Simulated assay, not measured.
Amino acid sequence: MTQGSAPPLLSLRGVVKSFGAVRALTDIDLEIRAGEVVAVMGDSGAGKSTLVKVIAAVEPSDGGAFSWKGREVQLTRPQHSQNLGISAVYQNLSLCDNLDVVGNVFLGGELRRFGVLDELEMGRRTRALLDTLSIRIPDARAPVASLPSDQRQIVAIARALLREPDLLLLDEPTQAMSTQQTNKFLDMIERLRDRGLGILFISHTMGDIKAVADRVAVLRLGRNNGVFNVHTASQEMITSAITGATDHAVAHRATE
């Protein structure tokens, strides 16, 4: 994990988000650094997916402060996050089943040459991107609807990585994967971290968190309930923060 004196890629301070009378996030603090995987855990309704959407600015926060590489920024529109270098992959993946792999990777950012789609260049870039992920999809021209769940997830991640982001947000990426598929996926996450990406990884599976994360932030009822060093904190300690047996577990906050 890359630490040093460089400021975090992204810092959140006192971030809040409400939907009508329902407070989804309250006073959220979080830091993510380059070359680091930060996991987020919590029960259903804890605010995990809302946190991803707030950072990606598809659901802008109602208050709080954001800093990007030490500079305060506004995240009020998705373009703001994208321009900074933040890409997100959501649970629903937002793939078009009727398009092939290449079409989905370049969806909304198609390349044109002399006014027509440059299918050759998009295909070349898609295959090169998949090669860098060390993930094999046999036919990049296959309809996405025909792909298994792990390959569909890879297509969504390839689209997110096309912009060469500094920070990748992943919301429950292994939820529909088999054990073998998950292991390959976690290997890919480690390779992305080794390349210097910051990764926010939402998961409900402790084994996945222990395998790939550096720190885990626990949300409970939309609030911070501890940030733990994955390598030193016990599974019981993290679980207690998730269930609320340990309340506001700041005593176990990971040291930077």
Score class of each variant (00 low, 15 high):
236 E>A: 14
165 P>Q: 07
152 R>L: 07
180 Q>S: 15
203 S>E: 09
129 L>R: 15
157 I>M: 13
186 L>C: 04
195 R>Y: 08
216 V>W: 00
244 G>K: 00
203 S>M: 06
229 N>D: 14
123 G>F: 05
125 R>C: 09
222 G>H: 01
247 D>G: 00
199 I>Y: 03
121 E>D: 12
212 V>S: 11
243 T>G: 09
235 Q>C: 01
175 Q>W: 03
209 I>A: 04
145 A>L: 10
215 R>E: 01
130 L>I: 14
214 D>Q: 13
219 L>S: 00
222 G>M: 00
175 Q>V: 09
165 P>D: 08
186 L>I: 09
196 G>A: 03
160 A>E: 08
114 F>L: 09
174 T>E: 02
153 Q>H: 05
176 A>Q: 08
124 R>N: 13
234 S>P: 05
252 H>W: 06
120 L>S: 13
159 R>M: 08
136 R>S: 12
171 D>E: 04
121 E>G: 10
131 D>Y: 10
166 D>C: 07
203 S>R: 04
242 I>W: 03
177 M>G: 11
208 D>L: 02
251 A>N: 14
215 R>L: 02
225 N>M: 01
146 S>F: 08
124 R>G: 11
188 M>R: 09
115 G>C: 10
251 A>F: 09
251 A>I: 04
217 A>S: 10
234 S>K: 02
144 V>R: 05
223 R>S: 01
181 Q>N: 10
187 D>C: 03
218 V>I: 06
230 V>E: 00
117 L>G: 14
239 T>F: 02
140 A>V: 07
228 F>Y: 10
230 V>F: 00
196 G>I: 05
181 Q>W: 03
